[in-house]
Computed example of a mutant assay.
Amino acid sequence: MNAKTITLKKKAKTKWIVILSIIFIAALIFTVRMAFYKPFLVEGSSMAPTLKDSERILVDKAAKYTGGFDRGDILVIHDKQSGRSFVKRLIGLPGDSVKMKNDQLYINDKKVEEPYLKEQKQKVKKLGVALTGDFEVEVPSGKYFVMGDNRLNSMDSRNGMGMPSEEDIIGTESLVFYPFGEMRQAK
């Protein structure tokens, strides 16, 4: 063998090592991501128009362990009684005072904007009704107050679902990945 042949073999061997390394790293990243992310099917219209029935989302399970949740996050919650999981928006944190008056949300007596409801509020205002009925509640320690974005058609902390604890929360919505043509981060 001449020097040129040896050099070509070394280049080919190096190329395969790089390709296999890239494949290994990609597989490792995929495995780690799947350990922290879980696909979830949205069932029903309680989060419309933010999330639609039959959309598929990725749930960030790590959020539970890396800094908690923020008001406004979209959560996936497992209900032990029914064995089902639901998607709802986090409104009140443990210890919060949550009040809805004249379709305006107040947390700890401070006015809170809900930009994700703007479109729906405009529609129901034309009908002369409120999107969200008046209520006032104190969120107990260790519990969270959640509501669906489709306030007129959502079972949530106001009406039967109760307030989930941190152990009931699977994670936060990370990405709508299906249908592919509507891929987005919902907020």
Results as ranks from 00 to 15, higher is better:
Ile91Glu: 10
Thr132Leu: 06
Ile57Val: 05
Asn2Lys: 14
Glu138Ala: 08
Asp168Arg: 02
Lys118Ile: 13
Val146Gly: 03
Gln104Arg: 10
Gly128Asp: 11
Ile170Trp: 05
Lys38Ala: 00
Ser165Pro: 03
Val124Ala: 12
Ser82Cys: 03
Gly142Lys: 06
Gly133Ile: 08
Phe30Leu: 01
Gly44Lys: 07
Met47Ser: 05
Ala130Asn: 15
Val176Ala: 03
Phe145Ala: 08
Asn102Tyr: 04
Thr132Trp: 07
Gly83Ala: 08
Met163Gly: 03
Phe40Gly: 00
Val76Lys: 04
Gly162Lys: 02
Gly128Cys: 10
Lys13Phe: 15
Gly128Glu: 11
Ile74Ala: 10
Ala3Val: 08
Glu173Leu: 05
Pro164Arg: 03
Lys118Trp: 11
Tyr106Gly: 12
Arg71Pro: 06
Gln120Gly: 13
Gly44Ala: 06
Phe145Asn: 06
Leu58Asp: 04
Leu93Asp: 08
Asp70Thr: 15
Ser45Trp: 08
Ala26Lys: 00
Ala26Pro: 00
Asp109Arg: 14
Arg84Ala: 12
Lys125Cys: 13
Thr14Pro: 04
Ile6Asp: 10
Ile19Leu: 11
Lys101Met: 11
Met161Phe: 05
Asn108Ile: 07
Val137Glu: 10
Tyr178Leu: 09
Pro115Ala: 11
Ser46Cys: 08
Tyr65Phe: 14
Ile22Asn: 01
Ile29Met: 04
Arg158Ala: 02
Glu55Tyr: 13
Phe177Leu: 01
Ala3Ile: 09
Gly133Glu: 13
Phe40Met: 01
Arg158Asn: 01
Leu117Ile: 13
Phe24Cys: 08
Ser165Ala: 09
Ser174Trp: 14
Phe135Cys: 06
Thr132Val: 12
Asn159Leu: 01
Ile6Leu: 15
Ile19His: 04
Met147Pro: 02
Asp73Leu: 13
Val42Phe: 04
Val129Tyr: 15
Lys52Ile: 13
Arg71Gly: 10
Gly95Phe: 08
Thr14Met: 14
Phe135Tyr: 14
Arg56Pro: 13
Thr50Phe: 08
Ile74Cys: 07
Phe177Asn: 03
Val137Asn: 05
Glu167Cys: 01
Thr66Cys: 05
Asp60Gly: 07
Arg33Ile: 00
Asn150Gln: 03
Gly160Cys: 06
Tyr65Thr: 12
Arg84Ile: 09
Ser154Tyr: 03
Tyr37Gly: 00
Lys125Gln: 15
Thr66Pro: 09
Lys118Asp: 12
Asn102Trp: 06
Leu41Tyr: 05
Asn153Glu: 10
Leu152Lys: 04
Lys187Leu: 05
Gly67Arg: 11
Val176Asp: 05
Pro49His: 09
Asp53Ile: 10
Lys88Arg: 08
Ala63Trp: 04
Thr7His: 10
Pro115Gly: 13
Ile29Asp: 01
Pro179Ala: 06
Gln120Val: 13
Ser54Tyr: 15
Pro140Lys: 02
Gly44Ile: 07
Leu41Trp: 03
Val59Leu: 07
Leu8Glu: 12
Ser154Asn: 00
Ile22Gln: 02
Tyr106Met: 14
Glu138Asn: 09
Tyr106Trp: 15
Asp60Thr: 04
Asp134Leu: 04
Thr31Tyr: 01
Asp70His: 15
Leu41Val: 05
Gly142Leu: 07
Arg56Met: 13
Pro94Thr: 09
Ile77Leu: 11
Leu131Asn: 11
Asp53Met: 12
Arg151Lys: 00
Ser157Asn: 02
Glu113Arg: 14
Asp103Val: 08
Leu58Pro: 03
Ile22Ser: 06
Asp53Leu: 09
Val124Pro: 14
